[in-house]
């Protein structure tokens, strides 16, 4: 049984506990930023920032809404990054949890191609060409702990558990949210292991909240990559 997150944005207060807990557990350094007139900080995900609470001010039905979206890797069930890489030494799926894991070997991949392949625009390149993103706190999960972001969440917006439990919870929470927010929906629940519940249209929350049409021209290459993958696997094990 793979693991899943349910992120109920209707409960998120943007305290950013998840963002800080993620940095803390992974021993990632802070980034120097400038005031951009928003509490959203840093400006984007990076090699050192796997999780970022997006904050958007949107006028909906004549009323100002502050929309929060704790953005992170979705750990796709069919992960385009993994397919594009075709190199299990660099990007692999952990069978027990369903986590998509980037290793230090991502250095030997074409970073631009991997980043381009992600429908949610998540992976980021480090100074030496290594790619980084959320690792589902696989070390914690394997040892029976919750991911750092879920453990720290004070409001219950972040949830983690077996996939069927999370899907059931998602259904329950959606029914509750629908009463107050008729447009409430789950984002790509069948395709990803990090399921977001949003109160309004996903595109209001952040540019890549939902798998979009932003993936260009990778298909043929990816399809081909998948066909010849066994060969590249042999090659990568010989090398």
């Amino acid at each position: 049984m793979s693991k899943s997150f349910l992120i109920d944005t209707t409960l998120c207060t943007a305290c950013r506990g998840c963002q800080v807990a993620c940095k803390q557990w992974h021993d990632l350094p802070a980034e120097k930023t400038i005031n951009r007139g928003t509490f959203e900080n840093p400006a984007d995900l990076s090699f050192d920032t796997y999780k970022l609470v997006r904050m958007r001010e949107e006028v909906i039905n004549g009323k100002l809404n502050w929309l929060f979206f704790p953005e992170q890797c979705r750990h796709c069930i069919e992960a385009p990054c993994l397919e594009t890489a075709g190199d299990p030494g660099a990007i692999y799926r952990d069978d027990k949890t369903g986590a998509i894991i980037f290793t230090a070997n991502t250095k030997r991949l074409n970073a631009a191609e991997i980043i381009e392949s992600c429908p949610y625009n998540i992976p980021r390149k480090g100074p030496d060409g290594t790619l980084a993103k959320c690792d589902m706190c696989i070390d914690r999960v394997e040892n029976g702990l919750l991911p750092a972001c879920v453990q720290t969440c004070p409001t219950g917006a972040m949830n983690f558990g077996d996939r069927d439990e999370m899907l059931a919870l998602a259904k329950k929470r959606l029914a509750v949210a629908k009463k107050k927010f008729p447009k409430a929906m789950l984002i790509d629940p069948d395709d990803v292991n990090v399921i977001y519940l949003v109160a309004y249209e996903p595109e209001l929350y952040c540019a890549n909240a939902m798998a979009s049409n932003a993936v260009f021209d990778i298909t043929r290459q990816v399809a081909l990559g998948r066909m010849i993958r066994p060969l590249t696997n042999i090659a990568s094990r010989l090398l």
Binding site: P80, A211, S212, V215, I218, T219, A223
Partner: peptide, 18 residues
């Protein structure tokens, strides 16, 4: 333009071929 859903179909098909 390839949506993610289409993408899954395409990769699924190539996996079946394999």
């Amino acid at each position: 333009n390839v949506t993610r859903r289409k993408f899954i179909q395409i990769t699924g098909a190539s996996a079946a071929g394999l």
